[in-house]
């Protein structure tokens, strides 16, 4: 059975650092390379930022749940929000050749994680599963 860590934070940008510190520490203890640990931390941070911006439309008093499952070969992070349902088909990154501010978060998440799975079948809100496998050295 995997070990699990659960973090609940308000949808307030100043608390994202707590999520980053936890993810970074967990990744390091699991044996991820520094590069992968940084990338996973970035992906989870970007996903939390998207929840604040899109699901909660900037409201800072809502709940974000971050469930981290530690497997021998991978980390799984499940992000839950209880805000506006996002149309999964409309989630996409912008064309990267179109250099303009914003719209990079989804691209970064998809670039660095092995599995990115959006679900919003629950009664309220959205769920995002992020998975990264530990790369064998050599």
């Amino acid at each position: 059975m995997p070990q699990a860590i659960e973090i609940k934070i308000p949808s307030e940008p100043k608390f994202l650092k707590i999520v980053r510190a936890t993810i970074s520490h967990v990744c390091e203890t699991m044996g991820f390379s520094q590069e992968d640990a940084n990338n996973i931390t970035l992906a989870v941070d970007e996903a939390c930022s998207n929840i604040i911006k899109h699901s909660y439309c900037g409201a800072s008093d809502q709940l974000i749940e971050v469930l981290i499952s530690i497997h021998h070969d991978r980390i799984e992070v499940l992000l839950k929000d209880f805000g506006k349902k996002v149309n999964v088909k409309q989630i996409k990154s912008r064309e990267l050749d179109d250099v303009r501010p914003g719209g990079l978060g989804v691209h970064l998440i998809k670039s660095v994680m092995d599995i990115v799975n959006y679900e919003n079948h629950s009664e309220a809100g959205n769920e995002l599963q992020l998975v990264k496998y530990i790369r064998k050295k050599g």
């Binding site: 980053r20 970035l42 941070d45 970007e46 930022s49 501010p101 914003g102 990079l104 978060g105």
Partner: peptide
């Protein structure tokens, strides 16, 4: 640390 909002 810098995220996509910093890049933007």
């Amino acid at each position: 640390y810098m995220d996509s909002s910093g890049v933007a």
